Amino acid sequence: MNIGELAKSVAVTTGSSEAEAKTAITAVFEQIAGAAAKGEEVSIPGFGKFAVKDRPERQGRNPATGEAMTIAASKKVSFTAAKGLKDKL
């Protein structure tokens, strides 16, 4: 499902236009991304939790040459599904 299909589905469910639904969906994702950029956790009851996790510096190998290299520390966004979402699967 892409954002267009999601917007159609939300528009039908809420009785709004596709443009309004797409605007609302985009706003929600922008707010989640903004909170993640600040290092905040976003929890949506019944759906799941978005959290920022630190990935420490680690050793790896260059796949082309096999040479050992250091992979820099970084941050990633992780999603943990809530029980309600897991039950639907």
Results as ranks from 00 to 15, higher is better:
residue 50 F to G: 07
residue 57 E to N: 08
residue 15 G to C: 13
residue 74 S to N: 03
residue 11 A to M: 06
residue 38 K to W: 06
residue 13 T to V: 12
residue 59 Q to K: 13
residue 48 G to D: 08
residue 10 V to I: 08
residue 29 F to N: 08
residue 14 T to C: 12
residue 1 M to A: 15
residue 81 A to E: 02
residue 54 D to F: 04
residue 59 Q to R: 13
residue 84 G to N: 11
residue 14 T to S: 15
residue 18 E to R: 10
residue 22 K to G: 04
residue 55 R to A: 12
residue 29 F to I: 14
residue 37 A to C: 14
residue 5 E to C: 10
residue 8 K to Y: 14
residue 86 K to I: 14
residue 72 A to D: 05
residue 33 A to E: 13
residue 68 A to M: 09
residue 16 S to P: 09
residue 34 G to D: 06
residue 54 D to W: 04
residue 18 E to P: 05
residue 88 K to A: 09
residue 85 L to Q: 03
residue 88 K to P: 01
residue 79 F to G: 05
residue 3 I to W: 08
residue 61 R to E: 10
residue 35 A to I: 02
residue 23 T to H: 08
residue 48 G to I: 00
residue 55 R to C: 12
residue 29 F to P: 08
residue 10 V to N: 03
residue 40 E to Y: 01
residue 13 T to S: 10
residue 43 S to E: 14
residue 38 K to T: 12
residue 5 E to V: 05
residue 50 F to A: 15
residue 40 E to P: 06
residue 82 A to S: 07
residue 81 A to Q: 02
residue 71 I to M: 01
residue 4 G to P: 05
residue 66 G to L: 09
residue 61 R to M: 08
residue 29 F to G: 13
residue 7 A to K: 00
residue 55 R to N: 05
residue 45 P to I: 15
residue 25 I to Y: 02
residue 81 A to W: 06
residue 7 A to M: 09
residue 77 V to C: 01
residue 83 K to H: 03
residue 18 E to S: 10
residue 38 K to C: 10
residue 27 A to M: 10
residue 69 M to D: 08
residue 54 D to K: 11
residue 24 A to P: 07
residue 48 G to K: 01
residue 53 K to W: 07
residue 70 T to K: 09
residue 38 K to P: 13
residue 62 N to I: 07
residue 78 S to C: 09
residue 53 K to G: 13
residue 19 A to M: 07
residue 56 P to K: 07
residue 31 Q to T: 14
residue 66 G to W: 01
residue 9 S to Y: 04
residue 35 A to T: 11
residue 37 A to N: 10
residue 23 T to R: 05
residue 72 A to V: 02
residue 16 S to N: 15
residue 73 A to I: 04
residue 7 A to W: 04
residue 76 K to C: 07
residue 31 Q to Y: 15
residue 83 K to G: 01
residue 31 Q to M: 15
residue 80 T to L: 07
residue 8 K to R: 14
residue 74 S to Y: 00
residue 69 M to I: 12
residue 41 E to F: 06
residue 71 I to C: 00
residue 41 E to R: 11
residue 72 A to W: 03
residue 40 E to D: 12
residue 9 S to G: 14
residue 6 L to E: 03
residue 19 A to R: 12
residue 84 G to F: 07
residue 86 K to L: 14
residue 88 K to F: 06
residue 48 G to M: 07
residue 18 E to C: 14
residue 15 G to N: 04
residue 89 L to P: 05
residue 58 R to L: 12
residue 33 A to T: 13
residue 35 A to K: 09
residue 75 K to Y: 11
residue 3 I to C: 09
residue 26 T to W: 00
residue 17 S to M: 06
residue 4 G to V: 10
residue 44 I to K: 03
